[in-house]
């Protein structure tokens, strides 16, 4: 990654526009064509431009577009695309009802990055290691994509197509993220393994379980940095659903989740390490989520 570029300046030349409404954003997108790029916090895009891996002719800033800001609760929670990671980390309703998401935002590398980085940018950059993706998958999140032609709502699981690849069309903007309403008996947890606290994940996992008495009646397990996109561990979810969990069952579910990963070796970790760590953190996240759901200590 660290090629010998001068990261002290931006060599590329580009235009910069700062629309204040979505309508103006659409106008700029059609005016400048595929050479234009949206910029939110810039923490991914400006680094990529400094490294000369992206070279847009025009940057369309989303920072002052009111329609993309804020958070509203309405049978669940809708978060505007430009909400900062730090605002999510500090949000009381997210901490209470979407604990795994709050934990993921708090585990985001550093405070200034959390202040600058946005939720929409994290998803649209589509890194397999995007920390907000696993918890959002665990909460059955969907994304609202808007263009002149209108709005379509896409389940987050169908949004990621590959590293850096999403279902967004060039003329579309990710407007908001919707999280399903939290239900009684639910508990969630996020666990991240990184080389140091201020780095992106080597692997991360989010889990949500819904408990009825001693049984798991619903379960989501999602992992980051173990496949070309953030992924759900469907086989492990099915294995636990309807069961009465004990240590052995949780271990088995975690093993299945680990077996289903397709990690690569890179500067941050080897394939073997990622697969092994997946299993460990899914076990830990399941155990914590179960306790948070009010479940009894696992035997």
């Amino acid at each position: 990654m660290y090629i010998a570029t001068n990261t002290h300046i931006l060599v590329a030349e580009f235009d910069y526009v700062e629309p204040t409404t979505l309508e103006e954003v659409f106008w700029h997108l059609s005016e400048h064509g595929p050479q234009a790029r949206l910029i939110a916090g810039g923490t991914d895009l400006l680094v990529q431009m400094k490294m000369e891996r992206k070279n847009p002719a025009c940057l369309i800033s989303l920072a002052r577009v009111l329609e993309l800001q804020g958070m509203t609760s309405n049978s669940g929670l809708t978060v505007g695309a430009t909400a900062s990671i730090r605002s999510l980390a500090r949000s009381e309703p997210i901490g209470r009802h979407y604990t795994a998401l709050a934990e993921a935002c708090n585990a985001f590398s550093t405070i200034p990055i959390m202040v600058m980085a946005t939720l929409g940018g994290n998803l649209c950059n589509a890194s397999p290691a995007a920390d907000t993706a696993p918890p959002l998958l665990a909460f059955d999140a969907s994304v609202a994509l808007v263009s002149r032609a209108g709005q379509r709502v896409v389940p987050l699981e169908d949004f990621f197509l590959g590293p850096g690849q999403t279902a967004l069309r060039h003329d579309e903007v990710l407007r908001s993220v919707h999280l399903a309403e939290s239900v009684r008996g639910a508990g969630s947890a996020f666990v991240k393994v990184a080389r140091v606290a201020a780095d992106i994940s080597q692997v991360c996992a989010a889990v949500r379980v819904v408990r009825d008495g001693d049984h798991v009646i619903d379960c989501r397990i999602a992992l980051g940095a173990v496949a070309p996109t953030p992924v759900r561990a469907h086989r492990a979810e099915a294995f636990l659903t309807g069961q009465r969990p004990d240590r052995g069952r949780v271990d088995d579910a975690a093993r299945i989740a680990g077996e289903d990963t397709k990690p690569i070796t890179d500067v941050r970790a080897t394939q073997e390490y990622r697969r092994h760590a997946s299993r460990v953190i899914v076990r830990d996240a399941l155990t914590t989520a179960w306790l948070r759901a009010g479940g009894r200590e696992l035997k």
Partner: peptide
């Protein structure tokens, strides 16, 4: 690191026009 409207941000990743 500088403060922008009171928030700590990284001036190496902020466009001046913004």
């Amino acid at each position: 690191t500088v403060h922008i409207d009171g928030q700590p941000m990284l001036s190496c990743l902020v466009l001046a026009v913004a």
